[in-house]
């Protein structure tokens, strides 16, 4: 249901927690997103953006673990 796209937080503008905006880069497109829901986000972080809002900071370590999961399969696990 929810199209949310990961992008890199390039810069942050504003102090008002409701209206804090970030410039987010998605493979060459830069668009502003509201950062109210990711108060901990800092420049360089990757955030998930939905309908103009960052809804979470992507956990890089967890992403690596997810990708590495496959490597743990023993050959006999595979058909």
């Amino acid at each position: 249901m929810c199209l949310a796209v990961p992008g890199q937080l390039l810069s942050i503008e504003g102090d008002d927690p409701l209206a804090r905006l970030g410039r987010v880069g998605f493979a060459g497109i830069v668009k502003r997103a509201n950062l109210a829901y990711v108060p901990e986000a800092k420049c360089g972080d990757y955030v998930l953006v939905h309908a103009g809002f960052a809804i979470t900071v992507i956990d890089e370590a967890e992403a690596r673990k997810t990708l590495a999961y496959l490597a743990e399969f023993e050959p006999e696990d595979l058909a």
């Binding site: 990708l67 496959l70 595979l78």
Partner: peptide, 24 residues
């Protein structure tokens, strides 16, 4: 695109398909 392309790797997808077939 980071956090997108890595999760669309065809070779990994095929390995998952094999793994699923292996346990079902």
């Amino acid at each position: 695109m980071k956090y997108v392309d890595e999760f669309r790797d065809p070779a990994s997808a095929r390995r998952y398909a094999e793994a699923i077939a292996g346990i079902t």
